[in-house]
Write a protein that binds this DNA or RNA. Structure first.
Length: 333
DNA sequence: AATAGTCATGC
DNA sequence: GCATGAC
């Protein structure tokens, strides 16, 4: 999934969401307080899901995830149209620089602060100091603009076809699924998240020798055309860059190799949305199951999860837990 | 107390 | 090998 995403699109509380997300980014990138980051994100998403326009801090406070501090910020914003705290951040050169640097893929809060201590504050500065960056960060810098561009659905469709045909030529037994927001039918996405599996790879019976090559072989085959850079690649996960045509922007591509007996649980999980996954897992628990990206397991009376239920389609997961099937397009929540 | 797990990197 | 950082 992409580095920055907004739970604040849509309804009547978008302006609150925007400043909460900005505060969240500040807490993560500059103050390195991941918990405040999560708290602000949670507050923003609960406001985004709230259909009625909030008219006071006290009204907001009734929502789960909004407490005294955020309630008072909403009051300040309603009264003055801005936030003192944010104004201060905007005038703080170090905060601005660190926030910018973390937009480079591979540069997180720690690296950004280190770079800023070295006097690096702009993309131009980064270009002059490439010796301070590792492989991933160099790629992030090289494609800084490209990676912030959304990917049109039609382009992902073409990339999907290319990956599928490439894999099938290698071995017709490969299965490829592009998940994420693309699978949910969105008209554009931030990156491309592909799942692949192969019958030789099954969670419980090991055929180690071939397994190690199953992902590498696909990556190698894609390297002659689609894939332009490798950020990282191991036995189960590839992270890299692809470009469909010369004139199109470079795109972030992730490929995960999934054991066949875990494929549908992984598909469900990586299709999302995050909110849908939470709803689904909560429902599973109510029905006496535990659901994660690997398996669906019944929970015994003792609370100990049993053996994974064999699954051969996404629908089956819904069926087992008595949940009306939702097509991927209906999981945008 | 706060999501999980893989890969790269540096000690 | 292990911890850390990033995704």
């Amino acid at each position: 999934m992409s580095k920055r995403k907004n739970p604040c699109e849509g309804k009547g509380n978008a302006d609150f969401c925007e400043f909460l997300i900005e505060l969240a980014e500040y807490e993560r990138n500059v103050n390195r307080n991941i918990h405040k980051y999560n708290a602000y994100r949670k507050a923003a998403s609960v406001l985004a899901a709230h259909h009625k326009r909030i008219e006071s801090g006290d009204e907001a406070k009734k929502l789960n995830g909004i407490g005294e501090k955020i309630a008072r910020k909403i009051d300040e914003y309603l009264l003055t149209g801005k936030l003192k705290k944010l104004e201060n951040i905007h005038h703080d050169a170090s905060a601005q620089a660190i926030n910018l640097l973390t937009r480079v893929s591979g540069i997180g809060p720690v690296k950004a602060a280190e770079l800023y201590r070295c006097g690096i504050a702009t993309i131009e500065d980064l270009n002059k100091n490439q010796d301070k960056l590792n492989h991933h960060q160099l790629i992030g810098l090289k494609y800084f603009e490209d990676f912030e561009k959304k990917i049109p659905r039609s382009e992902i469709k073409d990339i999907e076809n290319k990956i599928k045909t490439t894999a099938k030529v290698l071995d017709p037994e490969y299965t490829v699924t592009i998940c994420g927001s693309y699978r949910r039918g969105k008209s554009e996405s931030g990156d491309i998240d592909a799942l692949i599996t192969h019958p030789a790879l099954c969670g419980y019976k090991g055929n180690k020798k071939n397994e190690e090559k199953l992902l590498q072989n696909v990556v190698d085959a894609l390297n002659n055309g689609l894939v332009t850079e490798v950020i990282s690649v191991g036995e189960t996960k590839f992270m890299g860059v692809c470009r469909l045509l010369q004139d199109l922007p470079a795109r972030r591509l992730d490929i995960r190799l999934i054991p066949t007996d875990q494929y549908y649980c992984a598909m469900l999980y990586f299709t999302g949305s995050d909110v849908f996954n939470k709803t689904m897992r909560a429902h599973a628990l109510e029905k006496g199951f535990t659901l994660n990206e690997y398996s669906l397991r019944p929970v015994g009376v003792t609370g100990v999860p049993g053996e994974p239920v064999p699954i051969s389609s996404e629908e089956e997961i819904f069926d087992y837990m008595d949940y009306p099937y939702k097509a991927p397009q209906d999981r945008n929540m």
